[in-house]
Computed example of a mutant assay.
Amino acid sequence: MGVSDFSRSGARRPRWSRLAVRSGVFLIVAGVEVALFLTLSRMGLIEPPLAPPPVVVTLVNPPPVPPPPRVPEPVLEDSPAPADAAPPDTALRVAPPSPPPPPLRPPRLPPPEVETVPIAPSPPALPVLTSSQTAGARTAGRGAGGGAGGAGSGSGAGGSRGGCDMVSRLQDALRGDADVRAAIDAASRQLNASGRAIQVWDGDWLQNGDEAGKGLAGVRQAIAMEVAFAPADCRTEAMRGLVLLTLGDGAGASRIALGAPAWRWSDLLEID
Rank of each mutant, 00 (worst) to 15 (best):
S23P: 03
P97W: 00
D267C: 08
G163S: 12
M1N: 12
A85H: 05
V180L: 00
A125G: 10
A182T: 02
R196Q: 04
E113K: 14
P99I: 08
A148L: 14
I119E: 13
F37L: 13
R240L: 10
G159R: 07
N61G: 13
A86S: 11
V34I: 11
P88H: 00
P49N: 03
W16D: 12
D78R: 14
S122T: 14
P67V: 07
P80L: 04
A85V: 05
G143T: 01
I198N: 01
G259M: 01
D185P: 00
A230H: 02
A224V: 12
V25E: 11
F26Y: 15
L258C: 00
P96F: 00
L40N: 04
P121Q: 01
I119C: 09
S132D: 08
W265G: 00
P106F: 03
G145P: 04
D89S: 09
L268T: 00
D5S: 11
S98C: 14
V75W: 04
E33V: 15
D5I: 04
L258T: 01
G146T: 13
G248S: 02
E211W: 09
G150A: 04
V180G: 02
A120V: 06
V65I: 13
T58M: 14
S7F: 14
N192Q: 13
T139F: 01
A95N: 08
V55H: 08
I271D: 15
G250V: 12
S41H: 08
A83R: 14
P124N: 05
P231Q: 08
S160A: 15
L170G: 01
V114M: 04
V75F: 07
L247P: 00
P66K: 05
L244F: 02
E33A: 15
M1G: 10
A197C: 01
L38V: 11
A151R: 10
R161P: 10
A35D: 06
S17A: 08
L76T: 12
A212W: 13
I256T: 01
L174A: 01
E211Y: 09
P127V: 06
S266V: 10
R15N: 09
A157V: 15
P124Q: 04
L36H: 08
V219R: 03
P231S: 07
V167H: 07
V55L: 11
R264Y: 06
V71M: 10
S132L: 15
V21A: 13
P63N: 10
E73W: 09
S122L: 11
G215Y: 02
C164P: 00
V94M: 07
R22Q: 11
A187S: 02
V243A: 05
V65K: 11
L129H: 02
